[in-house]
Amino acid sequence: MHLAELNIGRLLAPTDDLRVKEFMDNLDRINGLGKRMPGFVWMSEGATEGSGKTENAIGDDPQLVFNLTVWEDLPSLEAFVYKTIHAKFMDRKAEWFEVLGEQHFVMRWIEEGQLPTREDALARLDDLRENGPSARAFGWDWIRAKSPKT
Rank of each mutant, 00 (worst) to 15 (best):
Gly52Val: 00
Leu12Asp: 07
Pro14Val: 11
Glu22Met: 10
Glu5Met: 03
Gly139Asp: 04
Trp96His: 02
Asp91His: 10
Arg124Leu: 11
Met107Asp: 04
Leu122Val: 01
Glu102Met: 10
Leu122Ala: 02
Gly39Cys: 06
Asp120Arg: 13
Lys88Asp: 11
Leu125Ser: 02
Lys146Met: 12
Lys35Cys: 14
Phe89Val: 11
Asn131Trp: 00
Asn26Gly: 10
Lys149Phe: 12
Trp140Cys: 05
Ala57Cys: 14
Ala79Asn: 13
Gln63Lys: 12
Lys35Pro: 03
Asp73Gln: 11
Phe40Leu: 07
Ala135Cys: 09
Phe138Asn: 10
Leu64Lys: 02
Gly52Ala: 08
Met24Gly: 00
Pro14Thr: 11
Ala123Trp: 02
Pro75Asn: 01
Lys21Cys: 04
Ala47Thr: 10
Phe97Thr: 07
Gln114Asn: 06
Asp16Ile: 07
Pro75Leu: 06
Ala121Gly: 01
Leu128Cys: 06
Gly34Val: 01
His2Cys: 12
Arg136Ile: 05
Ala121Met: 09
Thr117Met: 07
Asp127Ser: 12
Thr54Pro: 02
Ser51Gly: 15
Thr15Ser: 13
Tyr82His: 13
Val20Gln: 01
Asp126Trp: 03
Gly113Pro: 02
Glu130Ser: 11
Thr69Trp: 02
Trp71Lys: 12
Leu125Asn: 00
Glu5Ala: 11
Trp42Met: 15
Leu122Lys: 04
Phe89Ala: 08
Lys88Tyr: 05
Leu12Gly: 15
Leu27Trp: 05
Trp71Met: 06
Arg124Asp: 13
Val106Tyr: 01
Ala13His: 04
Leu64Ile: 04
Phe89Gly: 00
Thr150Phe: 04
Val41Thr: 06
Glu72Pro: 09
Thr48Tyr: 06
Thr150Ala: 13
Ser44Trp: 09
Asn67Lys: 00
Arg144Asp: 12
Glu95Ile: 07
Ser44Gln: 12
Arg92Cys: 14
Arg10Phe: 00
Pro62Cys: 13
Ala87Tyr: 03
Pro14Gln: 11
Arg10His: 00
Asp16Thr: 09
Glu130Asn: 14
Glu5Ile: 08
Gly50Ala: 00
Asp61Asn: 15
Gly59Tyr: 02
Glu111Trp: 04
Glu98Leu: 08
Glu119Thr: 11
Asn56Tyr: 03
Glu5Thr: 07
Arg136His: 09
Leu77Pro: 09
Asp141Gly: 14
Leu125Val: 08
Leu122Met: 15
Asp25Thr: 01
Asp17Met: 08
Gly39Arg: 03
Lys35Val: 06
Phe105Trp: 09
Arg118Gly: 06
Asn131Gly: 08
Glu112Asn: 06
Arg136Ser: 13
Phe105Glu: 05
Phe66Leu: 14
Gly46Thr: 04
Met90Ile: 09
Ser147Trp: 02
Leu122Arg: 00
Glu5Ser: 12
Gly113Ala: 05
Leu68Ile: 01
Gly46Met: 05
Ala94Gln: 15
His86Ala: 10
Arg92Gly: 09
Trp96Asp: 12
Gln103Asn: 13
Ser44Pro: 01
Asp61Gln: 01
